[in-house]
């Protein structure tokens, strides 16, 4: 027994190393498997506060650009408002046929973001007090930004489109074919659209929009444009590269999407799938 204690004492540093390493691995694996219940993240109040302070210093540098983006978006909205007949307009984006509001958009400010890691996260300066909850979609002025992963009262952590855990259903606007958007290019400006069969006519310049079947993003939100289509003879699917409409390196304001009918639809689907 005494020998055992002596052995343990002599090996105490190695044992401490193994214990700390094991703890790190447990944190790592938990963080990757259970995406909820994550205590170590920048939606934490202290870290959020530090990022908010940094943002207060750096935001002025981007204001000119933010103003230009907002003005452009407003102009696009006006064009849409005045150039289409009232009944067949784009109202399906925000309302359903009986003109009940189907989606609500909450404006939030980006206080921290990265674009060059393997998995990128964005911290928003609003949280549950503003109505932001996990699994809500986040869109920018020109395209997708990500999905809310965690929210604290004043901050929210968003899984960026730029990350290997992000997947969402998208479709080609011209042909209507579905595919899956995933980021595997390592380049913050492009992503891949997979699962589009070889016979589908895809051409460079086609617009890619969200499919909107998941209750996260509304349908028809612009994702980007096709920049390259290549065919691997050994595969039955196109290899499509999509240029992301939203420049995630400079996204300053985003809209968090609330699907107001999600609960109703989920209840119905749950009831239908029961025997």
């Amino acid at each position: 027994m005494r020998d055992l204690f002596r052995f343990l004492f002599r090996q105490r540093n190695n044992l401490l190393f193994l214990a700390l390493m094991a703890l790190s691995l447990v944190l790592l694996i938990n963080g990757n498997m259970h995406q909820r219940a994550q205590a170590i993240s920048s939606s934490n109040a202290v870290i959020g506060r530090i990022y908010a302070l940094r943002h207060e210093v750096t935001e002025f540098a981007d204001l000119r650009d933010v103003n230009r983006q907002l003005a452009t978006a407003l102009a696009a909205e006006r064009n849409r408002q005045f150039s289409r007949p009232i009944l067949a307009d784009s109202a399906h984006l925000a309302t359903d046929s009986t003109r009940h509001q189907a989606y609500r958009f909450i404006t939030a400010q980006v206080i921290n973001s990265t674009v060059h890691k393997e998995r990128n996260y964005i911290t928003l300066g609003s949280g549950t007090l503003a109505g932001i909850h996990p699994d809500m979609g986040v869109i920018g002025i020109n395209g997708l930004v990500g999905i809310v992963r965690e929210a604290s009262p004043h901050y929210a952590l968003v899984t960026s489109v730029l990350g290997n855990e992000f997947r969402t259903s998208v479709q080609l606007k011209r042909t209507g074919h579905f595919g899956l958007l995933a980021w595997d290019t390592g380049d913050p400006a492009t992503a891949s659209m997979t699962d589009v069969a070889n016979h589908v006519p895809v051409s460079v310049g086609d617009t890619v929009v969200t499919r909107g079947n998941d209750g996260i993003f509304p349908p028809g939100i612009r994702v980007g444009t096709v920049v390259a289509v290549s065919d691997d003879p050994s595969s039955n699917f196109h290899d499509i590269k999509v240029h992301l409409g939203e420049d995630l390196t400079r996204t300053a304001y985003v809209h968090v999407v609330t699907d107001l009918f999600k609960a109703e639809r989920d209840t119905l689907q749950a009831k239908a799938s029961k025997p």
Binding site: L20, S24, L27, A39, S42, R119
Partner: peptide, 24 residues
């Protein structure tokens, strides 16, 4: 040294939302 290394990594993990990555 070991404990400080772990704590340093954990502090970075909080900032980058990557539990266990920097700590390890």
């Amino acid at each position: 040294t070991l404990v400080l290394g772990f704590v340093l990594g954990l502090a970075m993990d909080f900032f980058s939302s990557t539990p266990g990555l920097h700590a390890g």
